[in-house]
Write a protein that binds this DNA or RNA. Structure first.
Lengths: 248, 248
DNA sequence: TGTTTGCAGTTTGTAGGACAAACTTACGTT
DNA sequence: AACGTAAGTTTGTCCTACAAACTGCAAACA
């Protein structure tokens, strides 16, 4: 966190938003904690003490606890009755299940995207691809994580199904740390980028069957890779890398 | 609710459970409120006042609010900044999106079930089918709702993917009221029951393709029916029925 | 010596009250 | 009749407090 003492920052630049709905304090806290978990600032399996989180975020315990309930529902933390919140740690099998679910949902989203082909969504997807290309060589892993998430978000949005998009967003949050670690291998990234570009073209071409096939293959590939990362204890397998170097 | 004044009941028959995990007060409250929403005791679009809910459940405001956060994350209620929680009311388009998602998830679950064919899961599925048959003529709509939910839960469980099962459970909660209303038409129920039996047989036979096909067709059929119910204002379309006769 | 029992210390679960901010409604004015 | 203002109500947030439960350590026992 960057705002040290008083309240959460980010509340100052409200700049005349009228339709902005969820600006409650608890949602800001939830966003902060979510980011901290996603980027590995809080490690999987780590015990979180409410007292410390209150000091970190600068909010009171009731507000913090409401935020924790949201994160709990998202599966990012788990709470045992009198032992407090713990950052969710995935087992290899759980990663397989999660990626199986992602395969189904995301290939369907991509297929729907290819079927609808709404111009605005296509433009948005192209924009995220361009950003990925710009970052390909110079971007930090955190940059790449965000850019990749934007790409997947654009695909989910292009499906035209808000529930599907929301579901996928939650799913991506649960595996973001794994992706983040995976992004530290630059040579692998080239291959992934090429795949993302190919899949984008299939969508734009409106080839539903090809889109679904490419997507399924892509997710199968990175799924096995994700399992490997978790098996190595949330580290890049085969290296002595301690990974997740203080993202911020 | 049935326990009028002091605390929530259901806490008495703990009977030496050791592995029971989530018995916090807020989870009990969440369960109660969830049931009230699912069965239409709280109508879609209804404003919920925290004060009243506190009196109804007999818990304090902090506990209640934490429970509301969970329900909010499940999509059963929505909260606007200073206007309090509102029971989610689906538009016809939202129903379509929800059922599209259900079609993808549940047909995949059924297909996985047909692929794995684990004996325990098959036995559990048969048991839910038997219960449905027993209730077919004599059961109340609420009985049928629960029995049908058990059937779908058994299918989700048979997929072997806990995340998929959990996802489907949340999805079913969001459309439970629609199903509940639909179950008031007994002649339709016969057809649905026949379909459920056919799909079960396909799973047991291990015919993945047939399973997926049957499931997709089934969900398409009840999806259009669900849309009709919402279009009629959460009433059975074509009748003057006021529906949802005080479930309890 | 190894196991168990008992006792702090700490953390969470729950409760009640309090105050500010914001929305809703009704009323009075122009 | 339309607008602006004021009261009442509800939510958002916070503080304090206490009971329940878990943790760890030390002492007593076999």
């Amino acid at each position: 966190m960057d705002g040290p003492d008083d309240q959460l920052d980010g509340m100052n630049d409200d700049s005349m938003l009228v339709a902005g709905q969820a600006v409650s304090l608890r949602s800001l806290v939830a966003d902060r904690l979510r980011l901290a978990i996603i980027t590995g600032r809080f490690r999987p399996g780590q015990q979180l003490r409410e007292r410390e989180l209150c000091e970190l975020t600068g909010v009171s315990r009731p507000s913090l606890r409401e935020a924790l309930r949201a994160l709990e529902a998202e599966g990012l933390i788990s709470t045992m009755p009198h032992r407090g919140p713990v950052v969710a740690a995935l087992t290899p099998d759980e990663v397989d299940h999660l990626y199986a679910l992602r395969r189904v949902l995301e290939s369907f989203a991509a297929r729907e995207f290819a079927r609808l082909r709404r111009p605005d969504d296509i433009a948005a997807l192209k924009a995220t691809m361009k950003r990925l290309d710009d970052l390909r060589d110079s971007g930090t892993p955190l940059d790449l994580l965000e850019a990749g998430s934007a790409y997947y978000r654009a695909v989910a949005s292009g499906s035209g199904n808000p529930y599907l998009a929301q579901n996928l967003q939650a799913l991506h949050n649960r595996i973001a740390l794994i992706r983040f670690i995976s992004l530290h291998e630059r040579n692998r990234n080239r291959l992934t980028f090429a795949a993302l570009r190919t899949m984008m073209k299939a969508i734009i071409a409106g080839d539903e069957a090809l889109t679904e096939q490419l997507w399924t293959e892509h997710l199968a590939a990175i799924g096995t890779r994700a399992r490997g990362i978790v098996e190595a204890g949330y580290r890049l397998p085969g290296t002595g890398d301690r990974s997740t170097p203080s993202a911020a």
